[in-house]
Amino acid sequence: MTTIDGIDNGVNVQALLDAREALKGAPEAAQFTWRSTTRWENGVHSTTTVRNFFGLGAEQTHKAESTFTADHPEVFAAEDHGITPIEYLLVGLGSCLAAGVASVAQNRGIQLRSVEATLEGAHDIRGILGADSDVRNGFNGVKVTFNIDADASREDIEALVAQSQKRSAVFDALTNPTDVTVEVA
């Protein structure tokens, strides 16, 4: 992997920088489509698989198919075969920000020893239950707390975390409205 002054967080920053330069002149190649397929199992239990996506002008395939089980906990009178769908948003946000921290650290020559993000999504479930029309369905707020051990000052670590938010796909998708179309095929 790329090393800058012996720093190695396992991120190939050079490849990312090269891609940035290459795609500046080829915006069409930068158009990606991510896909997933969800199959209902029973009750509020479903299974989602992810394998293919489109990008760099061609169909692409992950090395392996990934499977995600979603259900609801027993306090929701469900069987709890897997995590709740809204928890997948935390999975996405935490992993996206962690990837960003590692990439930015590599680019800035900061060696990471450990990175841990704890996420909390505040959710008033009266919204989804229809108990109070003034309560929204989604999170009221999400709090992310990073614990980072690295060869860097607190200020530099805060800057890593700030920059990772600036370049995070999931942070953007959660904080800004997205046009969503749902149809019956």
Partner: peptide, 20 residues
Amino acid sequence: MLFSGGLRAVVSLADLKMDR
């Protein structure tokens, strides 16, 4: 008008850059 929920992020970036 819909506003981003990322205000805290841009604000902390600006604070960090000012300190730098």
